[in-house]
Design a protein around this nucleic acid. Structure first.
Lengths: 219, 219
DNA sequence: CGGGACTTTGAAACCCTTCAATGCCAGTGG
DNA sequence: CCACTGGCATTGAAGGGTTTCAAAGTCCCG
């Protein structure tokens, strides 16, 4: 049930962080309220984004009305690396006061062409996104809902806490989690309840999770 | 049931292809037989790879022995963009005479730092991989096995044929497809049989697929 | 206080998994 | 040439987990 363990933090190394400061010249920052659209299908100008605060969800609405969340973006994460891959997807703020920095893709590419360190840093951010997708793919491949939810909680804890604490707040609803894990929101509920009853986690509120028995979650 | 439609081909534009030729100075090419390991957990030196011919599968072996294929790599595709995200994953040739080019990551980064066009081309390849993962995520999120298999066939057709033909050969077994779609190989069989009986596809052999009614596959 | 969104719990139907067995095909050795 | 073996593909039947539909509970906010 364990996720793929990583040998390094998701937070980019400070060397890359320093190189990314070159983006400042074309940066603009905006704040979004919960549910507000950040970018949608067929925008005129394409941007590279980075989450500063809050959380965002990237999703696709399937024929039939079902929504599938393909990525959950937390502070530090980039999204919107060109290649036309974003067509058919929308990005929304998941909670109020979500702050994003955006950079025109054309400007980013022009800067990266001249600044090798920036180019490498961006490459690293893209590789980080790929690693995130691969881990999510493993979660989606779990057989039972309980395993999916367990791995999701571990992954989320790992992305938010830097391993210092076992408590965290979920920025999304049970319904969102369901659309993220490809199960129904009711099944998410039942799995959380089951984990709580087993003493694996405790809930100080529906979205206030504390991991009590990490080994059981991994197991 | 339709996959996310893309506005461009998966095959990189020729401008990027030209820029990628700069990698030639540190390239080495090898051929692999079916099932042969290309790279595994904890290699000493890291490489960037590109498939020339054949096919490769990237997978993780989960506790419990289950195998999950997270990526299927076809000619033109890159894999192995650093960031430590490859830990816990293995890559194998899926069929005989699979040919790969490999480039030491350290050399690639050194080249990209000095060559802005190469850096942009690599960024584009990474974005292409991200788009591939997002599409795969949508497939994994389908509710029924029939939808998963339908979308898989459409996606595979799109990646191999450049839309000129409706026939293609699967380089992987039913078991592999199951591990790729997170369903059992038996269910893959049943879905294929069902599609055949409905006249949606025809099979000239277990791995020789022809799409008869594309609209029905799209759902 | 009421509305609305979210969460939780219950029951029946459905789909997939698992276990099992058979069929098919290529490669091998007698 | 034929039997044999192993891997892969296919089909069947029983069991279990999730979805769906339904309803009630909770919390926040106007």
């Amino acid at each position: 049930m364990a996720q793929a363990s990583l040998g390094k933090d998701y937070v980019p190394a400070s060397t890359f962080e320093h190189s990314l400061e070159a983006l400042g010249s074309c940066e603009s920052v905006r704040s979004y309220s919960r549910g507000q659209e950040i970018c949608g299908y067929g925008e005129s100008e394409k941007y590279l984004y980075r989450v500063r605060e809050g959380a965002a969800r990237k999703f696709s609405v399937q024929p039939g009305g079902r929504r599938h969340i393909v990525d959950l973006l937390l502070p530090g994460n980039f999204f919107g690396f060109g290649c036309g891959g974003d067509e058919g997807f929308f990005v929304e703020a998941a909670i109020d006061r979500t702050v994003l920095a955006q950079y025109p893709l054309r400007r980013v590419n022009a800067l990266a062409r001249l600044d090798g360190n920036l180019a490498l840093a961006l490459q690293e951010m893209a590789a980080e996104a790929i690693a995130r997708f691969e881990r999510q793919m493993l979660i989606l491949g779990k057989t039972t809902a309980l395993e999916k939810v367990s791995c999701f909680l571990l992954e989320f804890s790992s992305r938010t806490n830097s391993r210092t604490s076992n408590a965290f707040a979920l920025p999304i609803s049970r319904y969102d989690i369901g659309d993220y894990l490809a199960i129904s929101s009711e099944t998410v509920c039942r799995s959380m309840t089951q984990l709580k009853q087993r003493g694996t986690i405790s809930l100080d509120g529906p979205r206030e999770v504390r991991i009590v028995d990490r080994a059981a979650l991994e197991g």
